[in-house]
Design a protein around this nucleic acid. Sequence first.
DNA 1: ATTGAGTGCAACCATAGAGTTGCATATAAC
DNA 2: GTTATATGCAACTCTATGGTTGCACTCAAT
Lengths: 107, 107
Amino acid sequence: MPEVSSPVDVFAALADDSRWQVLAELGRRPASASALADRLPITRQAIAKHLRILADVGLVEPMKVGREIRYEAVGARLSDVARQLEKIAGGWERRLSRIKDLAEGDD
Amino acid sequence: MPEVSSPVDVFAALADDSRWQVLAELGRRPASASALADRLPITRQAIAKHLRILADVGLVEPMKVGREIRYEAVGARLSDVARQLEKIAGGWERRLSRIKDLAEGDD
DNA sequence: ATTGAGTGCAACCATAGAGTTGCATATAAC
DNA sequence: GTTATATGCAACTCTATGGTTGCACTCAAT
């Protein structure tokens, strides 16, 4: 299963408060689902689902440590997304300035 | 009314295929909800909702042209988001390398 | 004034998903 | 082996939301 998923899925993963809380925690230090459950106001199972979603889009990465599965935040994936956005944004700006130049024209 | 909305809302706005179709169209050239309804497979009302959401987070901007409301894609807002992501990503990387250095330590 | 294109509002349906509880399974530690 | 901790799976609830249809409103043009 490829780690690259559609950009929309990444945004969907980033479009949830609980997931940002998880990411914030993991940004500080890697942690397991159970450990996160101690620090966050939702159940371990809910966190597990979030971790699954985040892992699917490559924003976090699991690693086995003893009998637990510790997750860490993957900054590189986030940079990826950022770069894609910059590219799209650039495209819009270029086309817009062109359009504003012609004042406006139909199809 | 501040144009800045919570990052999560922006991601939520970007987490929908139809909205990306809308953005793609508007990236090409500004258009009204009705015009978009001609080119997209969903109803004008659905598009209107999407435009509302996109406008709320500043990704598109409405401008009155005669009796229609034409929307244009705002690249600057997207760049904003991209920069925020880069910053967060950088933070993760820094902390991670530090952690990997110490091999690991509890709270 | 009438027409028609464009917009706005509201009710409604269906699905996705965030969260929960409960139970089963695996495994490190004793 | 037993125990305690960690994960995994499944069913269920509840709410958010993408999409629809239908109707009312606005306003430029004739």
